[in-house]
């Protein structure tokens, strides 16, 4: 089916191509929802196991339908908008945020044969759009007229300036090793050896920056539940909160996909499994690792994050860059 899709996309006939794009969009959407849903369940079960609990058990076999039940509950609730909130931004920014993050996953070629989104600067485009996320979060928090959301929005901007620059430097390093920003060149450059082994420091920095980007512990300062109630989500009503849950897991998917593409050879792997399975399996493993971190670490303080970003990550990123150029020479 995938190859017939590839044929459609490359056929040169505009109607066929349009049909191919629509089919691809539906396929990837299903993938995103399936991943978000399944991963939400796996995360609940895994964390429950680490805490000597059972996790969801009643709804469906092994509680697999629990998330669906939660979704239905959230969607059935009323939308409440605080009086001093900026109504337009509060309602528009979340939708934009979710749409943007899902769009980013479309840019990632799940199958080498599919050419959609595989233009020369693919990876750079992903990070440019990803860089808008904290700004939209800031807008959402700032416009909801709640002081906790306000503090959370300020934290969002503060963390942004601490991790974004080292992350971009690491991507530039990877691009230098791969001779280009295209996702294809990134993956095919790793056919010999994974970038994870060529630049372990880079992996370390990128992983930490990605945790901060995804708001995962120990960097979940924006929605620090024990301090700021729910941070920028404090005054978000239930149906929107359901959207944010989808956003959370789809961003998790995106983040782990990016790590597996840049450092673990993306869809490359022994031929007994199709490439798409390799890519998703790698992403899933990374996501589970992030989940284990989530269950065990405490939250960092905001000033410490700034310090880590500028005193540790930044010089390390530069050292990583120098080592990579020495490898190239």
């Amino acid at each position: 089916m995938i190859y017939s899709l590839a044929y459609l996309l490359n056929s040169g006939n505009i109607y066929y191509e349009a049909a191919g794009v629509v089919a691809y969009a539906i396929l990837v959407s299903i993938l995103i929802f399936a991943f978000s849903y399944l991963f939400g369940w796996v995360e609940r079960k895994l964390i429950a196991k680490m805490q000597y609990r059972h996790g969801p058990t009643y709804v469906g076999k092994y509680g697999i339908l629990q998330n669906m039940a939660d979704l239905v509950k959230l969607l059935a609730k009323e939308i409440i908008i605080p009086e001093n909130a900026n109504r337009f931004i509060l309602l528009a920014a979340p939708i934009l945020l979710v749409a943007m993050n899902i769009f980013l996953i479309f840019l990632i070629p799940f199958v080498p044969a599919l050419q959609l989104g595989s233009f020369g600067l693919g990876l750079l485009a992903v990070f440019v759009v990803l860089g808008f996320t904290p700004i939209l979060i800031f807008l959402t928090g700032f416009s909801s007229g709640n002081k906790f959301a306000d503090i959370s929005a300020q934290r969002s901007v503060l963390t942004l300036i601490s991790y974004e620059i080292p992350m971009i430097i690491v991507i530039a390093t990877a691009a230098a090793l791969a001779h280009g920003y295209s996702i294809y060149s990134m993956v095919s450059a790793q056919s010999g050896i994974d970038f994870a082994f060529l630049m372990p420091i880079g992996l370390f920095i990128f992983f930490i920056a990605m945790l901060a980007e995804l708001e995962r512990p120990p960097f979940d300062l924006r929605e620090a539940d024990s301090e700021l109630i729910a941070g920028w989500l404090t005054d978000i009503s239930a149906p929107y909160y359901a959207l944010f849950l989808l956003l959370d897991y789809s961003r998790m998917f995106l983040g782990s996909l990016l790590i597996s593409i840049i450092f673990f050879g993306g869809w490359l792997g022994p031929a007994f499994l199709p490439p798409i399975v390799w890519l998703v399996a790698k992403a899933f493993t990374i996501a589970i690792f992030i989940t284990i971190l989530r269950a065990t670490t405490m939250r960092m303080r905001i000033d410490k994050i700034l310090r880590i970003g500028w005193i540790w990550l930044m010089p390390l990123a530069l050292i990583n860059l120098i080592i990579a150029y020495m490898l190239l020479l």
């Binding site: 805490q51 609990r53 512990p217 120990p218």
Partner: peptide, 17 residues
């Protein structure tokens, strides 16, 4: 106390158990 520091209920559950 670990919960207050932002851990996701793991030590909390251990302590409770």
């Amino acid at each position: 106390i670990c919960n207050d520091l932002g851990q996701l209920f793991t030590t909390f559950m251990w302590g409770f158990r």
